[in-house]
Nucleic acid binder design. Sequence first.
DNA 1: GCCATAATTGAACACCGTTTAGAATTCTTG
DNA 2: CAAGAATTCTAAACGGTGTTCAATTATGGC
Lengths: 204, 204
Amino acid sequence: MARRKDHAPEELKSMAIKAVIEFLQEQPADKLSLRQVAKMVGYSPGTLINLFGSYAFLILAANAHTLDHISDQLESSMTISDDPKEQLRLFANAYLTFAVEHPYQWQILFEHHLDEADDIPDWQLNRISRLFSLLESRLKVLNPQSSEEERHKASRVIWAAVHGICTLVIDDKLFAQETLTGESMIQSLLTHYLGSWTLPEMQS
Amino acid sequence: MARRKDHAPEELKSMAIKAVIEFLQEQPADKLSLRQVAKMVGYSPGTLINLFGSYAFLILAANAHTLDHISDQLESSMTISDDPKEQLRLFANAYLTFAVEHPYQWQILFEHHLDEADDIPDWQLNRISRLFSLLESRLKVLNPQSSEEERHKASRVIWAAVHGICTLVIDDKLFAQETLTGESMIQSLLTHYLGSWTLPEMQS
DNA sequence: GCCATAATTGAACACCGTTTAGAATTCTTG
DNA sequence: CAAGAATTCTAAACGGTGTTCAATTATGGC
């Protein structure tokens, strides 16, 4: 009972990744399993392990796919406006929108931890640093006199803050009244935080 | 093989919770298991399920304990200074410190999701809303003219932002140069965000 | 001393990720 | 063209997981 070769390895890989993502549109990560994915693609668990190395690496591959998806959405969201402040707002809102529309896919992206023995591969690191440069370039337009280091810090603070908002919104851990939306929180964050950004003499 | 009654139910409960937290000081949540905890306290898995209802509820109980611990640290951190801005900084830094010193305990606190059927019990909700009121009261001192709603929003934005910083710091997902510390990010966040808080006419 | 009651557990169940021996097909070679 | 080597794939087994439940034991009251 072997030797089928119905699909090329890369083809099967993308089938598995697609199955993972499809599953996560409706069910949370802890209901997902290797055996479930195997069933979906019509192969045995062992075959997927041969292909990806382990279940954890299959998830990692799916997360890479997700990150690409998010990158695309963020980058295209920026094209809507020319105003850098508005671009940052659109950027953050696109991030939030993805999290809200795909909560389980979003959760596994940040809650999946590899064993600390094997670290995150380069192709994953590169994706993320590209997103940060997008932020930093907008900050540079907003304040050309700012130093590289200032922009480095500001981009991280903003991203971490936006990320925190997204996390707590989809986990519903804000214990807020209903009038308080993620969008208005992002608006508030950016308005206040960037208020002094264009005045470089007042920085901490 | 039954009827031991070596420990009163509440006693056994706190033993199990203690075992969970002890385990998480050294190993991540995905290495933890009900059977492991059972072994640590010297009871069978079934006994713990009888006691807590399920493994998920045992984790929830441990998380409640963690939240109390954090609350204490935060509240006592505030007593160090009388300046409300400084208090908020101390507050946020205490939060960060706990996360860095107990990363696995921190992770399970936010990455543990109950089945959406059964929702978070009231005693857990109360703990959190108490923390928010602490924030809001500092914001009121900073700007007595601010409305309840403004403080509500600002406290959520600040907490979400600080939370995001903590998350990304302990997951090492900031891809930042080594000079950028969590403390300096918190400093930057508060300085800039609160810069306009004392000027209520400039709010979004 | 007996009996109902409450506490505890071992065994079973259905799942999980991973390993591995071997079956089945294809490719290469003589 | 046949034979053997190489590749692809899976079934089965292993040790783990949370959970259920019948069986067992010790206790407290009568």
